[in-house]
Computed example of a mutant assay.
Amino acid sequence: MTANGYRDYFKVLGVDRGADADTIKRSFRKLARQYHPDVNPGDKAAEARFKEISEAYEVLSDPDKRRRYEQFGQYWSQAGAGGGMGGMDVDFGRYGNFDDFINDLLGRFGGGGASSAPGGFGFGSGFPGGFGGSGFGTGGFGAGFPGGAKGAPANLDAEANLTLAMAEAFRGCERTLAVNDERVKVRIPAGVRQGSRLRLKGKGNMQPGTGRRGDLYLNLQIQTHPIWKLDGDQLRAELPLSLDELALGGEVRVATPDGEATVQVPPGMTLGRSLRLKGKGWPIKEGRGDLLLTPVLRMPDTLSSEERALLEQLRAARSADPRAGWIQAARL
């Protein structure tokens, strides 16, 4: 603003004086995104700049106001009805997101955008009974701003978290979700991973008055399991073995996701080394990954008198010191 109170609205928006309506609109969108208070929380200078470019766009986007502004300069508002936004107090809290605000702003300024009701889209409070309070978030500063004769849609996509039991993720399942007043059946394929993302086309936020609707993205979370742990394509678990099974080896019954199986434990099985069961792990595109069982020594809580006597005999007969060389090597 000059000393006499004149604002060069073309300079404010960074356009030439002969700029057409589309050029002015593009420049406003770019600057509005840059200086919007949601992008610059607590920045008073950015908020003032945002109001200034909003004022400039209000005038230059209206053919009658622009004509009077170009003819009368700083006295344009006294040359007819109307006035700028210079004293406007914008209540940004009325809007659910940035695109809501821009829709409303462009609609009021004659920019052709569809005005949406304050408060955001229909998914803001989450699914009733569907996700345990995970809620949907709108796309925020997503796919674009309203524009053109009827206005292109804002980013209407929505997201939510969906938690699955490991058995559901392993075998696949169907879930029926409550999306506002609609019940949507979702098929979860077998073998999804932690963080997998499913897209439900046309089940996202709806733009009021246009019928346009975005997509819903489900971010899948898998509950931890007391036995199984997913490691890439492999499924891992600890295999409890007794002292004699570790020392002598032999066939042992084990659990797999498909039921019981028999594996051969080699004599003198080293702790930390895994037994691999090919094709018994997590579902993958080509079939199944592998199952890895890592032996751990499981001692009984109590010993019978016979077990204790045998262990005493073993201690007496032991020929090797398990800590041979270890003590010397451990000194610092």
Rank of each mutant, 00 (worst) to 15 (best):
A255F: 03
E286A: 15
R288C: 02
R108M: 10
G82Y: 05
S274C: 01
A48R: 13
S77P: 01
T138K: 03
Y6I: 02
K30C: 00
L246A: 02
L218D: 04
S304A: 00
V59G: 11
G111A: 08
N4D: 15
I24D: 10
K51H: 11
D38V: 06
F50E: 09
G129V: 01
G151A: 02
E245D: 11
T262P: 01
G279H: 06
A329K: 13
R276P: 01
G14S: 08
D43C: 05
P37Y: 08
R187N: 07
R308I: 10
G135Y: 02
K150M: 04
S304M: 01
G86K: 13
P63R: 03
D62M: 05
G289I: 13
L297V: 08
W326E: 14
G133Y: 04
Q328I: 07
L311Q: 07
G80S: 08
G80C: 05
Q78L: 10
Y57P: 07
E245N: 07
P153L: 01
S319V: 11
D100Q: 12
G151N: 02
K185V: 12
G87I: 09
F123V: 06
R197I: 14
V179Q: 06
G119I: 09
T163I: 13
D8Q: 09
R193G: 08
A45W: 00
G112K: 10
E55T: 15
W228N: 08
G214C: 04
V265L: 06
Q264H: 12
S305P: 04
A165G: 14
D91I: 06
L332I: 09
K278H: 04
S125C: 06
E159D: 10
S196L: 04
M206E: 14
G211T: 08
Q221P: 00
L164A: 08
I188Q: 02
T176N: 10
N97C: 12
Q78K: 10
W326R: 13
L164I: 10
G147W: 08
D301G: 11
V186A: 07
Y75V: 02
E260Q: 13
W326K: 12
M299W: 00
R308V: 09
L106H: 07
V90I: 15
G122N: 08
G83I: 03
G135E: 03
T224F: 00
I53A: 02
A158D: 11
A56L: 08
S304W: 01
R26Y: 02
A48E: 15
M1T: 14
R183H: 05
I102V: 15
A158F: 08
D321A: 11
T138A: 10
V39D: 08
R199F: 01
L243Y: 11
Q194G: 07
R331I: 05
R49K: 14
A154F: 01
Q313K: 15
G129E: 07
S27Q: 11
G5E: 14
I24H: 10
A154K: 09
P300M: 07
N40P: 03
Y69S: 04
R273L: 00
A169L: 04
G87Q: 15
A165I: 02
A330N: 12
R29D: 15
V184Y: 05
D181A: 09
D104Y: 11
A255R: 10
G80M: 03
S274M: 01
D89R: 13
L332D: 09
G142F: 05
F10A: 06
F131A: 07
A178Q: 07
G110I: 04
D22A: 10
Y69A: 03
A255C: 00
S116L: 15
G93H: 09
L246M: 06
D321T: 06
T270F: 01
V252W: 09
Q194E: 15
